[in-house]
């Protein structure tokens, strides 16, 4: 790495570090929860690098624990991850000139937090040809913290009593991510309709509630946003 590249890489690390305040507790809880869901320590730890997505891993572990079919587990996680297509599209014009190896690595590292931090850099830097080093730094930082947090969670899981209800930290994390962003009617309607379908959809066969809730929430939000934009 040249010194300019190195500086950009380090900047990515520095910009990503503050977000780890939210990522690390989530990783710890996932480690604890994976074991509580009946996954082995190895399965829990490796899921953090194979699946590598917070909400995906939690849903995977919880559905797997209830005995959901592989098809339902897979489609539920797939729906959750559709959002990454937005990120992929947003960074595409910056990454397209890169070699295949770079694109594969950065594709793997393109998480919510890495995207949130590095897209700002892509859009404001005066050296866009170096900006992929920023994404590499921010993506790797998150990856390393996520792996360490998972391992610590798995190790600590055995000693943490169930009464602490640590699993509750996961919906709490999601609340902090979702609630402050419910500004438009379409956002609130998407959230409410998805929540209601999830609750009343528990009777649906094959644990289909999460896919059903997602489809309804996305449809309601999308249609209402059309109306909002026209108004």
């Amino acid at each position: 790495m040249t010194s300019d590249n190195m500086r950009e890489f380090l900047r990515g690390i520095g910009d990503q570090l503050p977000l780890q305040l939210g990522v690390v507790p989530f990783g710890l809880v996932f480690g604890v929860l994976g074991i509580a869901s009946g996954l082995s320590p190895l399965q829990t730890i490796l899921m953090s690098s194979i699946v590598f997505g917070g909400a995906s891993q939690v849903v995977f572990a919880q559905l797997w624990a209830t005995g959901a079919s592989p098809l339902i587990v897979g489609s539920s996680v797939a729906v959750i991850n559709l959002r990454h297509m937005l990120y992929s599209a947003a960074v595409a014009k910056y990454l397209r000139p890169l070699s295949l190896r770079w694109r594969i690595i950065l594709g793997y590292l393109l998480t919510d937090e890495a995207f949130a931090i590095s897209i700002k850099r892509f859009e404001t830097t005066d050296r866009p040809e170096l900006a992929h080093y920023h994404l590499l730094g921010s993506g790797l930082t998150l990856w390393v913290c996520w792996q360490i947090a998972t391992v610590v969670g798995v190790l600590a899981g055995a000693t943490i009593p169930d009464e602490l209800n640590l699993g509750f930290a996961i919906p709490l994390t999601f609340m902090a991510l979702v609630l402050p962003n419910l500004r438009r009617v379409s956002d609130i309607a998407a959230a409410t309709s998805a929540a209601l379908v999830a609750l009343f959809g528990q009777v649906l066969p094959w644990n289909a509630w999460i896919v059903a809730a997602a489809v309804v929430g996305i449809t309601v939000g999308g249609i209402l946003s059309h109306l909002e934009d026209r108004a």
């Binding site: 937005l86 919906p171 979702v178 998805a194 999830a198 999460i210 309601v220």
Partner: peptide, 15 residues
Amino acid sequence: YLRYVPTAVLSAIIA
């Protein structure tokens, strides 16, 4: 439509 994926999915899990 994709913009509503996180809101819908995470709200379902929270609920």
